[in-house]
Design a protein around this nucleic acid. Structure first.
Length: 479
RNA sequence: GCCGGGGUAGCUCAGUUGGUCAGAGCGCUGGAUUGUGGAUCCAGAGGUCAAGGGUUCAACCCCCUUCCCCGGUACCA
Protein backbone atom coordinates (compact mmCIF):
# COMPACT_ATOMS: atom_id res chain seq x y z
CA UNK A 1 0.00 0.00 0.00
CA UNK A 2 1.55 3.29 -1.03
CA UNK A 3 2.31 5.52 1.90
CA UNK A 4 0.90 8.64 0.42
CA UNK A 5 -1.18 11.12 2.32
CA UNK A 6 -2.76 12.43 -0.85
CA UNK A 7 -4.50 9.12 -1.49
CA UNK A 8 -8.04 8.70 -0.28
CA UNK A 9 -8.60 5.38 1.39
CA UNK A 10 -11.11 3.48 -0.77
CA UNK A 11 -13.87 2.14 1.46
CA UNK A 12 -17.61 1.74 1.76
CA UNK A 13 -19.80 2.90 4.62
CA UNK A 14 -20.76 0.53 7.38
CA UNK A 15 -23.69 -1.57 6.19
CA UNK A 16 -23.30 -0.55 2.55
CA UNK A 17 -22.11 -2.92 -0.14
CA UNK A 18 -20.62 -2.82 -3.60
CA UNK A 19 -22.05 -5.25 -6.09
CA UNK A 20 -19.50 -6.50 -8.59
CA UNK A 21 -20.59 -7.98 -11.93
CA UNK A 22 -20.61 -11.50 -10.51
CA UNK A 23 -23.05 -10.28 -7.83
CA UNK A 24 -25.06 -8.00 -10.01
CA UNK A 25 -25.60 -10.18 -13.08
CA UNK A 26 -27.57 -12.90 -11.24
CA UNK A 27 -29.36 -10.20 -9.29
CA UNK A 28 -30.62 -8.59 -12.47
CA UNK A 29 -31.99 -11.93 -13.60
CA UNK A 30 -33.94 -12.24 -10.35
CA UNK A 31 -35.28 -8.71 -10.74
CA UNK A 32 -36.48 -9.47 -14.26
CA UNK A 33 -38.39 -12.55 -13.08
CA UNK A 34 -40.08 -10.71 -10.24
CA UNK A 35 -41.01 -7.59 -12.14
CA UNK A 36 -42.36 -9.73 -14.95
CA UNK A 37 -44.70 -11.43 -12.50
CA UNK A 38 -45.75 -8.10 -10.99
CA UNK A 39 -46.76 -6.87 -14.42
CA UNK A 40 -48.56 -10.11 -15.15
CA UNK A 41 -50.82 -9.41 -12.18
CA UNK A 42 -51.65 -5.93 -13.40
CA UNK A 43 -49.23 -3.82 -11.37
CA UNK A 44 -47.84 -0.73 -13.09
CA UNK A 45 -44.29 0.57 -12.68
CA UNK A 46 -43.56 3.93 -11.13
CA UNK A 47 -40.83 5.60 -9.15
CA UNK A 48 -40.62 8.00 -6.23
CA UNK A 49 -37.58 9.84 -4.83
CA UNK A 50 -35.18 8.24 -2.39
CA UNK A 51 -35.42 11.29 -0.13
CA UNK A 52 -38.65 12.45 1.48
CA UNK A 53 -39.58 15.19 3.89
CA UNK A 54 -39.04 14.00 7.42
CA UNK A 55 -42.71 14.54 8.27
CA UNK A 56 -43.75 12.31 5.37
CA UNK A 57 -41.83 9.46 6.90
CA UNK A 58 -42.58 10.19 10.55
CA UNK A 59 -46.14 11.44 10.40
CA UNK A 60 -47.11 14.91 11.54
CA UNK A 61 -46.87 15.07 15.32
CA UNK A 62 -43.41 13.52 14.92
CA UNK A 63 -44.86 11.10 17.48
CA UNK A 64 -42.43 8.31 16.74
CA UNK A 65 -38.85 9.46 16.79
CA UNK A 66 -37.34 6.45 15.14
CA UNK A 67 -33.67 5.83 15.35
CA UNK A 68 -33.65 3.72 12.17
CA UNK A 69 -34.06 6.76 9.95
CA UNK A 70 -31.16 8.11 7.93
CA UNK A 71 -31.81 11.79 8.44
CA UNK A 72 -30.32 14.55 6.33
CA UNK A 73 -30.73 18.23 5.76
CA UNK A 74 -31.23 19.92 2.42
CA UNK A 75 -28.96 22.87 1.51
CA UNK A 76 -31.95 25.03 2.43
CA UNK A 77 -32.04 23.50 5.88
CA UNK A 78 -35.18 21.41 5.53
CA UNK A 79 -35.25 18.22 7.61
CA UNK A 80 -35.46 15.24 5.27
CA UNK A 81 -34.60 11.56 5.39
CA UNK A 82 -33.85 8.62 3.15
CA UNK A 83 -36.87 6.37 2.65
CA UNK A 84 -36.93 3.26 4.83
CA UNK A 85 -39.39 1.44 2.58
CA UNK A 86 -41.31 2.06 -0.63
CA UNK A 87 -44.76 1.88 0.90
CA UNK A 88 -44.86 5.26 2.60
CA UNK A 89 -43.93 6.96 -0.66
CA UNK A 90 -46.81 5.13 -2.31
CA UNK A 91 -49.26 6.34 0.31
CA UNK A 92 -47.99 9.88 -0.13
CA UNK A 93 -48.42 9.56 -3.88
CA UNK A 94 -52.03 8.43 -3.60
CA UNK A 95 -52.82 11.48 -1.53
CA UNK A 96 -50.87 13.85 -3.75
CA UNK A 97 -52.40 12.90 -7.12
CA UNK A 98 -56.01 11.98 -6.32
CA UNK A 99 -57.09 13.06 -9.81
CA UNK A 100 -54.52 10.97 -11.66
CA UNK A 101 -54.24 7.90 -9.48
CA UNK A 102 -57.85 6.91 -8.92
CA UNK A 103 -58.48 3.79 -6.87
CA UNK A 104 -58.37 0.96 -7.59
CA UNK A 105 -54.72 1.40 -8.38
CA UNK A 106 -51.86 -1.07 -8.39
CA UNK A 107 -48.23 -0.23 -8.75
CA UNK A 108 -44.81 -1.80 -8.35
CA UNK A 109 -41.60 -0.02 -7.50
CA UNK A 110 -38.04 -1.16 -6.98
CA UNK A 111 -35.04 0.47 -5.45
CA UNK A 112 -32.78 0.96 -2.48
CA UNK A 113 -34.10 1.81 0.97
CA UNK A 114 -32.11 2.77 4.05
CA UNK A 115 -32.34 1.87 7.70
CA UNK A 116 -29.83 2.66 10.43
CA UNK A 117 -29.45 -0.78 11.94
CA UNK A 118 -26.58 -2.98 12.93
CA UNK A 119 -25.51 -4.89 9.84
CA UNK A 120 -25.63 -8.66 10.05
CA UNK A 121 -25.74 -11.62 7.71
CA UNK A 122 -28.00 -10.58 4.84
CA UNK A 123 -28.70 -7.35 6.67
CA UNK A 124 -27.52 -3.99 5.40
CA UNK A 125 -28.13 -0.32 5.97
CA UNK A 126 -28.87 0.10 2.31
CA UNK A 127 -30.85 -2.70 0.78
CA UNK A 128 -33.13 -3.15 -2.18
CA UNK A 129 -36.83 -3.85 -2.11
CA UNK A 130 -39.12 -4.87 -4.95
CA UNK A 131 -42.46 -3.63 -3.78
CA UNK A 132 -46.07 -4.00 -4.89
CA UNK A 133 -49.07 -2.22 -3.46
CA UNK A 134 -52.76 -2.20 -4.32
CA UNK A 135 -54.99 0.66 -3.26
CA UNK A 136 -58.71 1.15 -3.07
CA UNK A 137 -60.36 -1.93 -1.65
CA UNK A 138 -60.74 -3.67 1.66
CA UNK A 139 -61.46 -6.93 -0.08
CA UNK A 140 -59.02 -9.59 1.08
CA UNK A 141 -59.12 -11.00 -2.45
CA UNK A 142 -56.34 -8.48 -3.09
CA UNK A 143 -54.33 -9.96 -0.25
CA UNK A 144 -54.91 -13.44 -1.62
CA UNK A 145 -53.60 -12.37 -5.00
CA UNK A 146 -50.50 -10.94 -3.41
CA UNK A 147 -49.91 -14.23 -1.65
CA UNK A 148 -50.29 -15.94 -5.01
CA UNK A 149 -47.64 -13.62 -6.40
CA UNK A 150 -45.28 -14.56 -3.58
CA UNK A 151 -45.74 -18.22 -4.43
CA UNK A 152 -45.33 -17.68 -8.14
CA UNK A 153 -42.08 -15.78 -7.64
CA UNK A 154 -40.57 -18.57 -5.57
CA UNK A 155 -41.80 -21.30 -7.88
CA UNK A 156 -40.53 -19.50 -10.96
CA UNK A 157 -37.13 -19.03 -9.37
CA UNK A 158 -36.93 -22.77 -8.87
CA UNK A 159 -37.46 -22.94 -5.11
CA UNK A 160 -38.97 -26.31 -4.29
CA UNK A 161 -39.60 -25.99 -0.58
CA UNK A 162 -40.91 -22.75 0.83
CA UNK A 163 -43.59 -21.48 3.15
CA UNK A 164 -45.72 -18.38 2.97
CA UNK A 165 -47.02 -17.77 6.45
CA UNK A 166 -50.23 -15.83 6.76
CA UNK A 167 -52.02 -14.29 9.71
CA UNK A 168 -54.22 -11.33 10.40
CA UNK A 169 -53.51 -8.61 12.92
CA UNK A 170 -57.15 -8.59 13.88
CA UNK A 171 -56.88 -11.99 15.51
CA UNK A 172 -54.18 -10.88 17.90
CA UNK A 173 -56.04 -7.62 18.46
CA UNK A 174 -59.06 -9.64 19.53
CA UNK A 175 -56.98 -11.80 21.85
CA UNK A 176 -55.31 -8.79 23.44
CA UNK A 177 -58.61 -7.05 23.86
CA UNK A 178 -60.05 -10.19 25.41
CA UNK A 179 -57.19 -10.20 27.89
CA UNK A 180 -57.72 -6.57 28.74
CA UNK A 181 -54.48 -5.39 27.16
CA UNK A 182 -55.54 -2.13 25.59
CA UNK A 183 -52.54 0.20 25.74
CA UNK A 184 -50.81 0.48 22.39
CA UNK A 185 -47.31 0.18 23.78
CA UNK A 186 -48.06 -3.06 25.54
CA UNK A 187 -49.86 -4.43 22.49
CA UNK A 188 -46.82 -3.69 20.37
CA UNK A 189 -44.56 -5.28 22.94
CA UNK A 190 -46.64 -8.46 22.98
CA UNK A 191 -46.54 -8.63 19.17
CA UNK A 192 -42.78 -8.28 19.18
CA UNK A 193 -42.37 -11.09 21.66
CA UNK A 194 -44.85 -13.37 19.94
CA UNK A 195 -43.12 -12.84 16.62
CA UNK A 196 -40.00 -14.41 18.09
CA UNK A 197 -41.68 -17.75 18.76
CA UNK A 198 -40.02 -19.64 15.94
CA UNK A 199 -36.63 -18.18 16.82
CA UNK A 200 -36.41 -18.49 20.61
CA UNK A 201 -39.00 -21.16 21.44
CA UNK A 202 -42.11 -21.23 23.54
CA UNK A 203 -40.37 -21.23 26.92
CA UNK A 204 -38.50 -18.00 26.26
CA UNK A 205 -41.66 -16.40 24.88
CA UNK A 206 -43.43 -17.37 28.09
CA UNK A 207 -40.73 -15.66 30.14
CA UNK A 208 -40.69 -12.54 27.99
CA UNK A 209 -44.44 -12.16 28.15
CA UNK A 210 -44.19 -12.47 31.91
CA UNK A 211 -41.29 -11.30 34.08
CA UNK A 212 -38.55 -11.17 31.41
CA UNK A 213 -35.42 -13.26 31.13
CA UNK A 214 -31.65 -13.20 31.02
CA UNK A 215 -30.24 -14.13 27.62
CA UNK A 216 -27.14 -16.26 27.03
CA UNK A 217 -24.82 -13.28 27.10
CA UNK A 218 -26.12 -12.31 30.54
CA UNK A 219 -28.06 -9.37 29.20
CA UNK A 220 -31.45 -8.88 30.85
CA UNK A 221 -34.45 -8.72 28.52
CA UNK A 222 -37.36 -6.93 30.15
CA UNK A 223 -40.67 -8.78 30.01
CA UNK A 224 -44.15 -7.48 29.29
CA UNK A 225 -45.15 -8.30 32.85
CA UNK A 226 -48.40 -10.12 32.12
CA UNK A 227 -50.01 -12.43 34.66
CA UNK A 228 -49.52 -16.14 34.31
CA UNK A 229 -53.14 -16.60 33.27
CA UNK A 230 -52.96 -14.06 30.47
CA UNK A 231 -49.63 -15.40 29.25
CA UNK A 232 -51.09 -18.90 28.93
CA UNK A 233 -54.08 -17.54 27.02
CA UNK A 234 -51.80 -15.90 24.51
CA UNK A 235 -49.62 -18.99 24.26
CA UNK A 236 -52.69 -21.15 23.61
CA UNK A 237 -53.55 -18.84 20.78
CA UNK A 238 -50.17 -18.73 19.09
CA UNK A 239 -49.62 -22.45 19.59
CA UNK A 240 -52.44 -23.19 17.18
CA UNK A 241 -51.17 -25.00 14.14
CA UNK A 242 -52.49 -27.46 11.62
CA UNK A 243 -51.52 -28.94 8.27
CA UNK A 244 -54.43 -27.19 6.65
CA UNK A 245 -55.70 -23.64 6.69
CA UNK A 246 -59.20 -24.89 7.42
CA UNK A 247 -57.77 -26.77 10.37
CA UNK A 248 -56.24 -23.62 11.83
CA UNK A 249 -59.52 -21.73 11.50
CA UNK A 250 -61.32 -24.57 13.23
CA UNK A 251 -58.88 -24.69 16.14
CA UNK A 252 -58.92 -20.93 16.56
CA UNK A 253 -62.61 -21.04 17.27
CA UNK A 254 -61.81 -22.96 20.41
CA UNK A 255 -59.26 -20.57 21.86
CA UNK A 256 -60.50 -17.14 20.87
CA UNK A 257 -62.37 -15.02 23.40
CA UNK A 258 -66.05 -14.48 22.67
CA UNK A 259 -67.06 -11.23 21.08
CA UNK A 260 -67.55 -9.33 17.86
CA UNK A 261 -63.83 -8.57 17.33
CA UNK A 262 -62.89 -12.23 17.34
CA UNK A 263 -65.86 -13.16 15.19
CA UNK A 264 -65.05 -10.69 12.47
CA UNK A 265 -61.35 -11.55 12.55
CA UNK A 266 -62.26 -15.19 12.03
CA UNK A 267 -64.61 -14.28 9.22
CA UNK A 268 -61.78 -12.41 7.54
CA UNK A 269 -59.52 -15.43 7.84
CA UNK A 270 -62.20 -17.73 6.44
CA UNK A 271 -62.75 -15.46 3.50
CA UNK A 272 -59.02 -15.38 2.87
CA UNK A 273 -58.94 -19.18 3.03
CA UNK A 274 -61.65 -19.38 0.38
CA UNK A 275 -59.79 -16.99 -1.90
CA UNK A 276 -56.52 -18.87 -1.48
CA UNK A 277 -58.30 -22.10 -2.38
CA UNK A 278 -59.83 -20.44 -5.42
CA UNK A 279 -56.33 -19.48 -6.55
CA UNK A 280 -55.25 -23.09 -6.16
CA UNK A 281 -52.57 -22.44 -3.53
CA UNK A 282 -51.75 -25.69 -1.73
CA UNK A 283 -51.85 -25.95 2.06
CA UNK A 284 -48.24 -27.04 2.15
CA UNK A 285 -47.05 -23.75 0.69
CA UNK A 286 -49.43 -21.23 2.22
CA UNK A 287 -50.06 -21.71 5.91
CA UNK A 288 -52.01 -19.85 8.55
CA UNK A 289 -49.77 -19.11 11.50
CA UNK A 290 -51.26 -17.21 14.46
CA UNK A 291 -47.79 -16.36 15.81
CA UNK A 292 -46.85 -14.29 12.77
CA UNK A 293 -46.78 -10.62 13.73
CA UNK A 294 -44.24 -8.64 11.62
CA UNK A 295 -42.47 -5.56 12.79
CA UNK A 296 -44.20 -2.63 11.14
CA UNK A 297 -47.14 -1.36 13.08
CA UNK A 298 -49.02 0.24 10.19
CA UNK A 299 -50.51 -3.17 9.41
CA UNK A 300 -54.21 -3.51 10.16
CA UNK A 301 -55.33 -6.83 8.64
CA UNK A 302 -53.74 -9.78 6.89
CA UNK A 303 -49.95 -10.04 7.14
CA UNK A 304 -47.72 -12.42 5.24
CA UNK A 305 -44.14 -13.54 5.07
CA UNK A 306 -42.19 -15.89 2.78
CA UNK A 307 -39.40 -18.19 4.01
CA UNK A 308 -37.28 -20.68 2.08
CA UNK A 309 -37.43 -23.93 4.04
CA UNK A 310 -33.94 -25.03 3.05
CA UNK A 311 -32.41 -21.59 3.65
CA UNK A 312 -34.34 -20.59 6.75
CA UNK A 313 -31.29 -18.94 8.32
CA UNK A 314 -31.65 -16.12 5.81
CA UNK A 315 -34.91 -15.13 7.48
CA UNK A 316 -37.96 -13.99 5.60
CA UNK A 317 -37.15 -13.02 2.04
CA UNK A 318 -40.45 -11.28 1.36
CA UNK A 319 -43.27 -9.96 3.42
CA UNK A 320 -46.10 -7.51 3.67
CA UNK A 321 -49.63 -6.93 4.76
CA UNK A 322 -52.68 -4.76 4.72
CA UNK A 323 -52.46 -1.18 5.91
CA UNK A 324 -55.86 0.44 5.78
CA UNK A 325 -54.99 3.58 7.74
CA UNK A 326 -51.68 4.78 6.36
CA UNK A 327 -53.04 7.03 3.60
CA UNK A 328 -55.10 8.93 6.15
CA UNK A 329 -51.81 10.40 7.35
CA UNK A 330 -51.86 12.48 4.15
CA UNK A 331 -55.54 12.71 3.21
CA UNK A 332 -58.85 13.45 4.89
CA UNK A 333 -60.44 10.57 3.11
CA UNK A 334 -58.97 7.13 3.69
CA UNK A 335 -57.83 4.69 1.04
CA UNK A 336 -57.40 1.08 2.14
CA UNK A 337 -54.24 -0.60 0.80
CA UNK A 338 -52.33 -3.81 0.91
CA UNK A 339 -48.86 -4.65 -0.32
CA UNK A 340 -45.74 -6.76 -0.18
CA UNK A 341 -42.04 -6.32 -0.75
CA UNK A 342 -39.30 -8.72 -1.72
CA UNK A 343 -36.00 -8.21 0.10
CA UNK A 344 -33.78 -8.63 -2.91
CA UNK A 345 -30.47 -8.90 -1.07
CA UNK A 346 -31.67 -11.66 1.21
CA UNK A 347 -33.47 -13.47 -1.58
CA UNK A 348 -30.48 -13.56 -3.90
CA UNK A 349 -28.21 -14.62 -1.01
CA UNK A 350 -30.59 -17.47 -0.20
CA UNK A 351 -30.96 -18.50 -3.84
CA UNK A 352 -27.20 -18.52 -4.27
CA UNK A 353 -26.92 -20.66 -1.15
CA UNK A 354 -29.41 -23.11 -2.65
CA UNK A 355 -27.49 -23.20 -5.91
CA UNK A 356 -30.42 -21.81 -7.85
CA UNK A 357 -28.50 -18.92 -9.36
CA UNK A 358 -25.87 -19.61 -11.97
CA UNK A 359 -22.61 -17.88 -11.09
CA UNK A 360 -22.04 -15.72 -14.14
CA UNK A 361 -19.12 -13.35 -14.23
CA UNK A 362 -19.94 -11.78 -17.55
CA UNK A 363 -22.70 -11.16 -20.02
CA UNK A 364 -20.24 -10.86 -22.88
CA UNK A 365 -20.67 -13.57 -25.51
CA UNK A 366 -17.76 -12.81 -27.79
CA UNK A 367 -14.34 -11.28 -27.25
CA UNK A 368 -12.61 -9.91 -30.33
CA UNK A 369 -8.86 -10.38 -29.95
CA UNK A 370 -6.00 -9.50 -32.24
CA UNK A 371 -2.63 -11.00 -33.06
CA UNK A 372 0.25 -9.01 -34.41
CA UNK A 373 -0.12 -5.57 -35.93
CA UNK A 374 -3.79 -5.40 -36.63
CA UNK A 375 -5.11 -1.84 -36.66
CA UNK A 376 -7.83 -1.02 -34.15
CA UNK A 377 -10.25 -0.05 -36.90
CA UNK A 378 -10.30 -3.68 -38.09
CA UNK A 379 -11.24 -4.82 -34.61
CA UNK A 380 -13.96 -2.19 -34.39
CA UNK A 381 -15.45 -3.24 -37.70
CA UNK A 382 -15.67 -6.87 -36.61
CA UNK A 383 -17.19 -5.98 -33.28
CA UNK A 384 -19.75 -3.72 -34.90
CA UNK A 385 -20.76 -6.49 -37.26
CA UNK A 386 -21.27 -8.93 -34.39
CA UNK A 387 -23.29 -6.40 -32.42
CA UNK A 388 -25.45 -5.62 -35.44
CA UNK A 389 -26.32 -9.32 -35.39
CA UNK A 390 -27.42 -8.97 -31.77
CA UNK A 391 -24.37 -10.62 -30.23
CA UNK A 392 -22.95 -9.10 -27.05
CA UNK A 393 -19.38 -8.29 -27.98
CA UNK A 394 -16.33 -6.87 -26.28
CA UNK A 395 -13.46 -5.65 -28.42
CA UNK A 396 -10.26 -6.19 -26.45
CA UNK A 397 -8.22 -3.09 -25.71
CA UNK A 398 -5.90 -3.48 -22.76
CA UNK A 399 -2.55 -2.40 -21.41
CA UNK A 400 -0.94 -5.36 -23.11
CA UNK A 401 -2.11 -6.57 -26.48
CA UNK A 402 -0.32 -9.92 -26.65
CA UNK A 403 -2.51 -12.93 -27.25
CA UNK A 404 -1.84 -14.48 -23.87
CA UNK A 405 -3.27 -11.59 -21.91
CA UNK A 406 -6.23 -11.34 -24.27
CA UNK A 407 -7.17 -15.01 -23.91
CA UNK A 408 -6.47 -14.89 -20.17
CA UNK A 409 -8.97 -12.08 -19.93
CA UNK A 410 -11.56 -14.21 -21.70
CA UNK A 411 -10.73 -17.19 -19.50
CA UNK A 412 -10.88 -15.23 -16.25
CA UNK A 413 -14.23 -13.67 -17.02
CA UNK A 414 -15.64 -16.80 -18.67
CA UNK A 415 -16.40 -15.35 -22.06
CA UNK A 416 -17.46 -18.36 -24.16
CA UNK A 417 -16.29 -17.44 -27.64
CA UNK A 418 -13.35 -15.53 -29.08
CA UNK A 419 -12.99 -14.13 -32.56
CA UNK A 420 -9.30 -14.00 -33.45
CA UNK A 421 -8.05 -11.54 -35.97
CA UNK A 422 -4.38 -11.76 -36.97
CA UNK A 423 -2.31 -10.31 -39.76
CA UNK A 424 -2.77 -13.52 -41.75
CA UNK A 425 -6.54 -13.45 -41.38
CA UNK A 426 -6.74 -9.79 -42.39
CA UNK A 427 -4.65 -10.46 -45.48
CA UNK A 428 -6.88 -13.39 -46.52
CA UNK A 429 -10.22 -11.82 -45.59
CA UNK A 430 -10.78 -14.42 -42.89
CA UNK A 431 -11.31 -14.67 -39.14
CA UNK A 432 -10.68 -17.47 -36.64
CA UNK A 433 -13.55 -18.34 -34.34
CA UNK A 434 -12.69 -20.18 -31.16
CA UNK A 435 -14.96 -22.07 -28.79
CA UNK A 436 -13.24 -21.31 -25.50
CA UNK A 437 -15.41 -23.56 -23.34
CA UNK A 438 -14.93 -26.58 -25.57
CA UNK A 439 -11.23 -25.83 -25.89
CA UNK A 440 -10.82 -25.69 -22.15
CA UNK A 441 -12.50 -29.02 -21.76
CA UNK A 442 -10.49 -30.73 -24.48
CA UNK A 443 -7.15 -29.58 -23.15
CA UNK A 444 -7.88 -30.06 -19.47
CA UNK A 445 -5.76 -33.22 -19.15
CA UNK A 446 -2.66 -31.91 -20.88
CA UNK A 447 0.10 -31.42 -18.32
CA UNK A 448 3.00 -30.42 -20.52
CA UNK A 449 3.07 -26.80 -21.43
CA UNK A 450 4.47 -27.16 -24.93
CA UNK A 451 1.84 -29.75 -25.78
CA UNK A 452 -0.79 -27.50 -24.29
CA UNK A 453 0.22 -24.69 -26.57
CA UNK A 454 0.43 -27.05 -29.47
CA UNK A 455 -3.19 -28.00 -28.96
CA UNK A 456 -4.16 -24.35 -28.82
CA UNK A 457 -6.05 -24.42 -32.06
CA UNK A 458 -8.44 -27.22 -31.21
CA UNK A 459 -12.06 -26.13 -31.14
CA UNK A 460 -11.16 -23.30 -33.48
CA UNK A 461 -12.12 -22.75 -37.10
CA UNK A 462 -10.91 -20.25 -39.64
CA UNK A 463 -13.66 -19.01 -41.91
CA UNK A 464 -14.31 -16.26 -44.40
CA UNK A 465 -15.38 -12.91 -42.97
CA UNK A 466 -18.84 -13.32 -44.40
CA UNK A 467 -19.34 -16.55 -42.48
CA UNK A 468 -18.24 -15.09 -39.11
CA UNK A 469 -21.62 -14.19 -37.64
CA UNK A 470 -23.13 -17.50 -38.62
CA UNK A 471 -20.18 -19.47 -37.19
CA UNK A 472 -20.26 -17.54 -33.91
CA UNK A 473 -23.99 -17.99 -33.59
CA UNK A 474 -23.77 -21.74 -34.03
CA UNK A 475 -21.01 -21.96 -31.48
CA UNK A 476 -23.03 -19.99 -28.93
CA UNK A 477 -26.03 -22.21 -29.47
CA UNK A 478 -24.03 -25.35 -28.85
CA UNK A 479 -22.48 -23.97 -25.69
C1' G B 1 -27.17 -0.48 23.31
C1' C B 2 -25.20 -5.07 25.89
C1' C B 3 -21.88 -9.67 25.94
C1' G B 4 -17.94 -12.20 23.53
C1' G B 5 -14.02 -12.78 19.62
C1' G B 6 -10.94 -10.11 16.45
C1' G B 7 -7.88 -6.10 13.35
C1' U B 8 -0.33 -8.47 10.69
C1' A B 9 0.77 -8.15 2.37
C1' G B 10 -4.80 -7.36 -2.44
C1' C B 11 -7.24 -12.12 0.15
C1' U B 12 -7.02 -16.13 4.11
C1' C B 13 -4.15 -16.38 8.24
C1' A B 14 0.57 -17.94 11.30
C1' G B 15 3.81 -15.55 14.75
C1' U B 16 6.92 -14.41 19.96
C1' U B 17 7.22 -15.72 28.91
C1' G B 18 8.51 -9.04 25.37
C1' G B 19 14.93 -9.80 22.35
C1' U B 20 17.16 -11.16 13.63
C1' C B 21 9.49 -12.45 13.87
C1' A B 22 8.28 -8.92 9.18
C1' G B 23 6.36 -14.75 7.62
C1' A B 24 3.28 -18.65 4.67
C1' G B 25 -0.36 -19.96 1.12
C1' C B 26 -3.37 -17.89 -2.50
C1' G B 27 -3.60 -13.75 -5.75
C1' C B 28 -0.71 -10.11 -8.59
C1' U B 29 3.61 -8.81 -11.99
C1' G B 30 7.62 -10.65 -15.11
C1' G B 31 10.11 -14.84 -17.40
C1' A B 32 10.46 -20.14 -19.26
C1' U B 33 6.61 -19.42 -24.02
C1' U B 34 7.43 -12.63 -29.44
C1' G B 35 0.00 -16.39 -33.27
C1' U B 36 -3.28 -19.61 -28.46
C1' G B 37 -6.25 -19.56 -22.14
C1' G B 38 -5.06 -23.90 -17.76
C1' A B 39 -1.40 -26.55 -14.77
C1' U B 40 3.95 -26.42 -13.63
C1' C B 41 8.79 -24.19 -12.65
C1' C B 42 11.80 -19.73 -11.69
C1' A B 43 12.05 -14.66 -10.27
C1' G B 44 9.87 -10.15 -8.36
C1' A B 45 6.78 -6.39 -6.24
C1' G B 46 3.74 -5.57 -2.19
C1' G B 47 3.57 -4.08 5.28
C1' U B 48 3.85 3.06 9.03
C1' C B 49 1.82 -5.34 12.32
C1' A B 50 -5.91 -0.51 12.76
C1' A B 51 -4.86 4.63 15.13
C1' G B 52 -3.05 7.31 19.41
C1' G B 53 -0.89 7.15 24.18
C1' G B 54 1.68 4.39 28.21
C1' U B 55 5.12 0.56 30.62
C1' U B 56 10.24 -1.20 29.19
C1' C B 57 17.12 -1.16 27.67
C1' A B 58 13.70 -3.35 24.01
C1' A B 59 6.54 -3.80 22.07
C1' C B 60 3.17 -6.80 16.42
C1' C B 61 3.21 -9.11 21.57
C1' C B 62 1.73 -6.16 28.07
C1' C B 63 -1.68 -1.79 29.78
C1' C B 64 -5.19 2.39 28.52
C1' U B 65 -8.25 5.10 24.91
C1' U B 66 -10.51 5.46 20.18
C1' C B 67 -12.06 3.48 15.52
C1' C B 68 -13.48 -0.59 12.64
C1' C B 69 -14.82 -5.86 11.60
C1' C B 70 -17.14 -10.66 13.06
C1' G B 71 -20.64 -13.66 16.17
C1' G B 72 -24.70 -13.50 19.64
C1' U B 73 -28.51 -10.49 21.81
C1' A B 74 -31.63 -6.20 21.87
C1' C B 75 -33.92 -2.83 18.44
C1' C B 76 -36.19 -2.75 13.44
C1' A B 77 -42.51 2.95 12.97
Amino acid sequence: MPDDERLVQPRTLRGFQDLLPQDFIPRKAVIAVIEGIYEKYGYLPLDTPAVEHLETLLGTGGEETNKELFTLETPEGEPVALRYDLTVGFARLLAQYPDRLKPPFRRYASGPVWRVNKPGPGRFRQFTQLDIDAAGSENVALDAEIIAIMCEILTTLGVERYEVRVNTRRLMDAVLEGCGILEQDRQKHVLRVVDKLAKVGVDNVRLELGPGRIDESGDPIPGVGLTRQVVEKILDFIAVQSDTRAGVVEMLRGVLPPGEAAESALRELEELAEDLNALGLPDRYVKFDPSLARGLDYYTGPVFEGVLTDAAEFGSVMGGGRYNQLVSRFLDQNIPCTGMAVGLDRLTSALTFLGLIPALKTTVQVLVVTMGKVPACETLKLAAELRAAGIRTEAFFGPKMNLKSQLSHADRTQIPVAVLLGEDEVARGQVSVKDLMAGKKERADIADHAAYRQAGRVSQVTVARQAMVETVRKMLEQG
